[in-house]
């Protein structure tokens, strides 16, 4: 059971949250201009790294707010959690 630090509520058990997949993927503003391949890329392709992964979480059974997190997919360690709309904190990129 992961212990996740909600930026609003503090550390809470995983069972209160839901993961929303990779973070920082902006919904394309002008979708009509995208080719089918580019649109499919937005819909279906994700980075899937072994290591640090920026992802979205929602504190479903708490404040019900979406936020971002950087989690190491190999060790499940949470490197950072930060609010929706904020940028990925420096130093949380790539290999640990």
């Amino acid at each position: 059971m992961l212990l996740i630090t909600c930026p609003y509520c503090g550390p809470r058990p995983e069972i209160e949250f839901r993961c929303g997949g990779e973070a920082h993927i902006a919904r394309p503003a002008d979708a009509e201009a995208l080719s089918d391949a580019a649109w499919a890329d937005y819909l279906f392709y994700r980075t899937n790294p072994k290591g640090r992964h920026a992802e979205r979480w929602i504190h479903q059974h708490g404040c019900q707010r979406w936020f971002n997190a950087v989690r190491d997919t190999a060790s499940d360690a949470f490197v950072a959690t930060y609010r929706m709309g904020e940028k990925r904190p420096p130093g949380t990129e790539g290999e640990p």
Binding site: R18, I58, Q64, W66
Partner: peptide, 13 residues
């Protein structure tokens, strides 16, 4: 409702 909240909070805040 979750679908709506997702868009309201993360796409069209």
């Amino acid at each position: 409702l979750a679908h709506m909240e997702d868009y309201l909070q993360t796409v069209w805040p």
